[in-house]
Simulated scan of single mutants.
Amino acid sequence: MSETPDMTPDILCIGSVLWDIIGRSPAHMSTGADVPGRITRVPGGVALNIAMTLARFGLRPGLLSAVGRDAEGNDLVAACAAMGLGTAHLYRSDDLPTDRYMAIEAGNGLIAAIADAHSLEAAGGKILRALEDGRLGSAAAPWAGPVALDGNLTTGLLAEIAGSALFAAADLRIAPASPGKAERLLPLLSHPRATIYVNIEEAGLLCQRRFAGAAEAAAGLLERGARRVLVTDGGGACADGCAAGGEVITAAPRPVLVTRITGAGDTFMAAHLVAELRGAGRGAALAAALDAAASYVSGDIGT
């Protein structure tokens, strides 16, 4: 199956579209452990994880990313198209291989992960061509819908986006991709149309301090100039902070047996976005996002 040319997206998902290679074992693991388990290869990447969740909720996401013209890339594009995701505006490179992510998950959590998103970084601004050449928008008539943007883009490109006319009318929803890339979001932190989704570790990196909980982290990000932030803390209470009035609200996730971790934050973000697009208030949207993330980590929602 090839690219889907005719779909008009409801939302754009910009960032990593790659293969997730995940090794999972119910055993507790430490450095050097060698245990039996399962290894899977599934479509992944922050932008793609968000897009897949949005599609499950009935939206039509369009992908803006870099995917190679290698066999892995062709398989990945076919898988995305089969899920109803818009692939017509992907940058397909003859020279760059399809990106990959590898993680080891155990009974005691995420043991290690490596993100190989070098092709996305090398493609740079080429992935945004459809936003400037009239297919999805232009500087004179920018895209006016929601955009899910992830921090796998380079610091330079994220800084360009922060000041770009192409995003002047968009509802920007932004995730850092990983704690190691959190500080890439600094140019976008105070963007007037941005909502930032981070975990408590990423919030600490953006603020250069430690936080005792999600509510304190949300308040800290608002002090740094953020307009709107959502902060998660694993099984602890999550927070939604809004600069309009400086209000922070919190909610706790329901306890579940955790069977997987990779993609949980992306599911939370997508479910929250969908709830707000459907008119839910802040409290209801936060509750919906927590419920979707709990179902995901418990294995009740398919990959």
Rank of each mutant, 00 (worst) to 15 (best):
T4F: 05
I14Y: 04
D20C: 08
I22Y: 01
G23R: 03
V35C: 02
V42N: 02
P43T: 08
L48Q: 15
N49Q: 09
I50A: 15
T53S: 15
R56T: 10
D70P: 00
G73W: 03
L76T: 06
A79N: 07
M83N: 13
Y91G: 01
R92C: 11
P97F: 01
A103L: 08
G107P: 07
I111T: 13
A115H: 06
L120R: 02
A123T: 00
G124M: 00
L128G: 01
A130V: 05
E132R: 01
A139Y: 02
W143H: 05
V147A: 10
L149Q: 08
L149F: 09
T155Q: 07
I161T: 08
S164R: 01
A170Y: 01
A175F: 03
C207R: 11
Q208L: 04
R210Y: 08
A212G: 15
A218R: 02
G220F: 15
L222S: 12
T232L: 09
D233Q: 15
G234H: 11
G235F: 04
A237W: 08
E247Q: 13
I249M: 06
I249H: 03
A252Y: 02
P253A: 12
P253C: 12
P255T: 11
V258Q: 11
D266F: 02
D266H: 07
V274L: 01
L277V: 02
G279H: 00
A285C: 02
A285L: 04
L286D: 03
A292N: 06
A293N: 03
